[in-house]
Simulated assay, not measured.
Amino acid sequence: MTNKTDLVFILSVDTEEEWDWNGPFPEKDFSVENLHALPQFQQFCMRLGIRPCYFVDYAAAKGLDPSSEFMQLVQKNTCELGAHLHPWANPPIFEKPTEENSHVVNLPLTQVEQKLDALMQVFAEKFEYRPRAFRTGRWGISAEIMDLLWSRGFTVDSSVYPFYENEYFSCQGSPTLPYWPATSDVLSCGEQRNILEMPVTVGFNRQPFELANKINRTLDSPNLQKVKANAILWHSKLLRKIYMSPEVTSSSNMISLCDSVDTQKQPIIHMYLHSSNLIQSGTGVMDSEEPYALITRRIKNVIEHLKKQHNVTFMTLSEAKVHFQTNPRFIAA
């Protein structure tokens, strides 16, 4: 195929403890067995050229051995470590975890500040590493948290989950491209140039995304949920909301999203997953007996598809921030 267009590919990995996502939040004795899968996974990424950003939370940071094979790969600049804040696993602990306070965006800023400083201390003391990229636990961000991140030296955030909302937070209305968040409304473009927002890739198999999202939200209303209208559209392939995540989305659907994004000439694909899904029964979400093989096969299929149509450049979050900052025409305005 001639006339290939340039495309930036980012893979971010929430690197954290495993637990049953359908059960209560863990409060002690955090299991991080999935960390043993990271060296193999990073080697897989290196073979494809991918330069992941591992968003490491407190439990995972405490569980990582600074002399491990994985950390040796980090030190060789094959990937990047970012910071990831899980309120229930990150001291100081202020209250029993609930669905609402499990979202960092719902915590008092003083709590976020203390937890973030405790997490940064582990990075500094254990790894002599200062992360520049950040993602909140369970998505969502506020202007106050963004200011806090800047004060702690972060330059890129990836807490915005386009087209997503629940009763505890919303990212509806956010750009889908990298953008400079406004100081008054972090889901809108603004004038500050301290922190670049790098949303993950979410969209639909139909264009335009804004209209598809409006239909999807309407059909997801309580009355229409009873007739399972969105499920009917999904199975008929008339309208599918697709997440660029190999732990919940098939290769074919992610490729469909890539093609849909390509019609908008978007210069970036940002895929994401959780390290805990690299092992069997790590979250209870994947029912595969070989989740690692399934996830890596899906990633490989997407990469092979993208390379047929694009000149793909693999970047960490911080590298992508510099790239888009020096190529502002690709930043949402």
Rank of each mutant, 00 (worst) to 15 (best):
T5L: 14
I10C: 12
L11N: 04
V13R: 01
E16H: 03
W19N: 08
D20N: 14
N22F: 13
E27M: 13
N34R: 09
L35A: 04
L38N: 02
P39Y: 11
Q42S: 08
C45S: 09
G49L: 12
P52D: 11
D65I: 04
M71W: 04
L73F: 12
K76C: 09
L81K: 05
L85C: 01
A89E: 07
I93R: 04
E95N: 09
P97W: 02
T98V: 07
E100V: 12
L116H: 03
V122D: 04
K126R: 15
E128F: 09
E128A: 13
R135K: 01
G137A: 12
S142D: 14
A143F: 00
I145F: 02
D147C: 09
D157R: 02
V160Y: 00
F169V: 00
P175I: 09
P175G: 05
A182W: 04
S184P: 02
S188W: 00
G190D: 03
I195F: 06
M198L: 15
V200H: 01
V202R: 10
F204V: 10
F209P: 02
N216A: 05
Q225F: 08
K228Q: 14
N230Y: 11
K237H: 13
L239A: 02
R240N: 00
K241C: 07
M244G: 03
L257S: 00
C258D: 06
D262Q: 10
K265C: 05
I269C: 04
H270M: 09
Y272P: 00
L273P: 00
L273R: 01
H274E: 07
N277E: 15
M286Q: 10
V302G: 00
E304K: 14
K307Q: 14
K308S: 05
H310W: 08
V312I: 11
M315T: 07
S318K: 03
H323C: 01
I331H: 09
